[in-house]
Nucleic acid binder design. Structure first.
Lengths: 73, 73
DNA sequence: GTGTGACTTCTAGTCCGTA
DNA sequence: ATACGGACTAGAAGTCACA
């Protein structure tokens, strides 16, 4: 794993909200991978809080799910 | 400089708001460096949008300035 | 369709000096 | 008190195979 240190509150907040929104929109990881331009496997790790994701990618995921970034925090 | 790619909208939004809030609270970069545990030189680059900061550190900066992370986006 | 570990490449993040 | 640059290390980005 790349994001070694255990899930932090910040990662978990973002990850859980992202997953909730994605599912609410009936999107699979593969769907979101396509709309965000990121790898589905990577997104899976982000949603579970195992990755310390940076702003640019947070933004892409927010866009990919049709929301403002601040609404995922 | 490490963060090569130019400032993205996501970086700029966060950076500008952080700088505004920090100054509104009369904090210097060194003050924020101390309350957040991050390097002041690095924070300077984040505020100007030159760095693609990760969530955990965004959280630390939000804490260091006494705000919720979502309010800096 | 999804979670995870492992791996390489690239940059986030530190530290120092200089202005 | 802030900015910028170089040089370095830790860790994020990005991908894959297997469950």
């Amino acid at each position: 794993m790349a994001g070694k240190s255990g899930p932090s509150p910040a990662r978990l907040t973002f990850g859980k909200k992202l997953r909730a929104v994605r599912r609410a929109k009936d999107m699979t990881l593969e769907d979101l991978a396509e709309t965000s331009g990121l790898n589905w496997s990577y997104i899976s790790q982000v949603e579970s809080g195992h990755r310390n994701i940076a702003v640019d990618n947070m933004w892409k995921l927010a866009q990919g799910v049709g929301m403002e970034l601040k609404d995922l925090l």
